[in-house]
Write a protein that binds this DNA or RNA. Structure first.
Lengths: 190, 190
DNA sequence: TGCGGGAACGGAGACCTTCTCCGTGCTGGG
DNA sequence: CCCAGCACGGAGAAGGTCTCCGTTCCCGCA
């Protein structure tokens, strides 16, 4: 996301302001927050917002990129502290909690794991997939995870399960239980 | 949904037209289809649409109610033809296929299984829950389904898994595989 | 330090959608 | 056949997205 030519001072300032305003607005109103309102909060014109972020998706990604990267980094920490299977489980739990708690992040993570195809090089999908790959491979080597699933599968299923848990209880009270059913299903056949 | 006083002839005609137009529009553009466009297709004013269906949700429910009821009825057929565990699996598969194929039905089914609480008496949730309950109880009695899950849990998880499969492949190519991982997780611990 | 080219700004405005309000017209029971 | 009143329909307010273009303000160079 860094610019080839460094940004002009005012441009950089507006960019930062927009990011901050966007994170607030998305947290408050969910992914559907009004873009013009975000521009107003940031004290810039809507033209400026659309120049920096051509689509809602682009803004969402930029606004939450730091959180996403923090999540990806957590995978490394957990991998160091816990045996592979447990690390994967714990990480998925944290990811799902984030998905449910931070309004607006659900849509972002969803699109990040969409379209298993070739392209899909969005800024959020890449670190998440990389983090998942590390945990998934370790768990498969350890033998606590089916060999026929891919990191993307695991992320997608976790995302789906988080959505299911949210349907059951918007506070996420069912998340642990639902997630344990998923990990049960992901264990190798005995 | 039937009226207490029978509807006036013109009212009934408009109601039917709206239903037909809505089913078309939702299938074509997904759940976000323009309501005013639906009114135009039906050849009525938007006021008429909003009088019959105060919310998008209400229209969605009414437009797809027959399909939902057909799905619920399928549960009975499958229960007669197959052993309980297989019947549940087959039914969930059909439900998920419908969810993925018919644009606009996903949101409807999602809301139908939301909020496991007391109320949630929407027209679609009730038959779906009832159908699920029958299959779930039979499978639990047979011993092919964990005893600690409820019909609503199963529906929600299936809905989540269908969403995950759609992320992987909008055509639904991964549905069978993802669903089998779920049913694996729903089997009783050996 | 001062200037000028051009990047970046910002808000007016075109267009779309939702939803309401109320004058109009049609239906159907008496 | 008639008229009370239900249902119609479209104009219009409110609010959103996104673009265009005249204006402002940086910053490199003299």
């Amino acid at each position: 996301m860094t610019q080839l030519k460094p940004m002009r001072a005012d441009a950089r300032r507006n960019y930062e302001r927009l990011l901050k305003a966007a994170a607030e607005a998305f947290a408050e109103h969910g992914e559907g927050a009004s873009l013009d309102d975000i521009a107003k909060r940031a004290g810039v014109g809507s033209g400026t917002l659309y120049r920096h972020f051509p689509t809602r998706q682009a803004l969402l990604e930029a606004a939450y990129l730091d959180r996403i990267e923090a999540m990806a980094a957590r995978a490394g920490e957990l991998a160091d502290r816990l045996p592979p299977g447990a690390a994967l489980e714990a990480w998925l739990h944290e990811v799902c909690v984030g998905t449910v708690q931070v309004r607006g992040m659900k849509a972002l993570l969803g699109s990040a794991v969409a379209d298993g195809g070739t392209a899909a090089l969005n800024a959020c999908g890449t670190p998440m997939r990389a983090a998942a790959a590390r945990l998934v491979e370790a768990a498969q080597k350890e033998g606590t995870l089916r060999a026929d699933v891919e990191p993307s599968d695991v992320l997608r299923l976790a995302h789906g399960v988080a959505g299911a848990a949210e349907l059951a209880d918007p506070e996420g009270g069912q998340l642990t239980r639902y997630l344990s059913l998923l990990t049960e299903g992901l264990r190798p056949r005995p």
